[in-house]
Write a protein that binds this DNA or RNA. Structure first.
Lengths: 156, 156
DNA sequence: TAGGACCTTGGAGTGCACTCCAAGCAAGCG
DNA sequence: CGCTTGCTTGGAGTGCACTCCAAGGTCCTA
């Protein structure tokens, strides 16, 4: 058995802290192994390495033997990436954002635009979901009523 | 050129009618070809055939030569499927729901549960999105401010 | 009755976001 | 010293939801 595949995090643990500033080590002693980062983020080690390969992570520090040592800054970045991922933003776009950050201050404008676009997408998605919620509720009410009295098949 | 690949519907056409009861033919003359359904739903013909193959559509009526003839009922079903898809429900679950419908009235209870679970998922997703929205807004404000005055790199 | 647009099928291919594998080095412990 | 556990790499594999293809049959209009 290799590589402990995440902590079997099912849908139900959405209340697990968003691994915020809790149980972090102070800046200066912030040298987390990949498995610690797995515990913090809920991502798998595979995914963390993959993020690095595709350029979604700035190159992570290494120990003298070549093992990854993540910093608090890296954790912050992963936190942001996690949020962006929740918005449904494609990985390619997140990589683009990461590139802009690497390129320096002069890309502020472009980053701003990218985030604003994402914001619009999120708003649209929320509206969409609220719309489906209405449909769902109509159907749910139908089945709830039908549970009481026998009804005329095929919903409404 | 074969098989007109959708009406190049970009993200921006979310205001296109959800192909509701508009321009439908009255029950009795409701025999739509696959390309008409493509126009109504925004799905591709490929996808419509695929939905049928995997059991997500009840078997669609055929003309005497074997061509698909969709009914108003089929359109209603596709409307619902579209909504469920927007919730992010996996296709496999939608197929399950379709099976329950085929099995008849005695599956009302199970359908009710399935929809209620979906509803919870949607609510959770909305909450999640609203959370990411807050993060996004903080970042956007940061960049908006930074646009005015030169700032200390690497966001906040 | 000819031409082109449209439709049929099974099966293979695509793109995304992981996910896993094998082979091998490294650190800590009894 | 050997053992276990954890880490490294490039590359291959997976699952989902389509998406496309080839070869052929059908419909409609001039």
């Amino acid at each position: 058995m290799t590589e402990t595949t995440s902590t079997s995090s099912t849908k139900t643990d959405s209340c697990a802290t968003p691994f915020s500033t809790a149980n972090r080590r102070p800046d200066g002693q912030d040298h987390y192994t990949i498995s610690e980062v797995v515990a913090f983020t809920g991502l798998t080690a595979h995914t963390l390495r993959w993020y690095e390969r595709i350029g979604l992570m700035p190159h992570v520090d290494r120990s003298h033997t070549g093992q990854r040592r993540y910093s608090n800054r890296d954790l912050d970045w992963l936190d942001l990436v996690g949020k962006l991922r929740l918005t449904g933003m494609p990985v390619a776009d997140m990589v683009r954002y990461a590139e802009l950050v690497r390129e320096g201050d002069h890309t502020y404008g472009e980053r701003f635009e990218l985030l604003k676009t994402t914001r619009e997408d999120v708003l649209a998605r929320i509206a969409e979901l609220q719309d489906t919620l209405a449909v769902l509720d109509r159907k749910i009410n139908f089945y709830a009523d039908a549970g009481q009295a026998p009804a005329s098949e095929r919903s409404r």
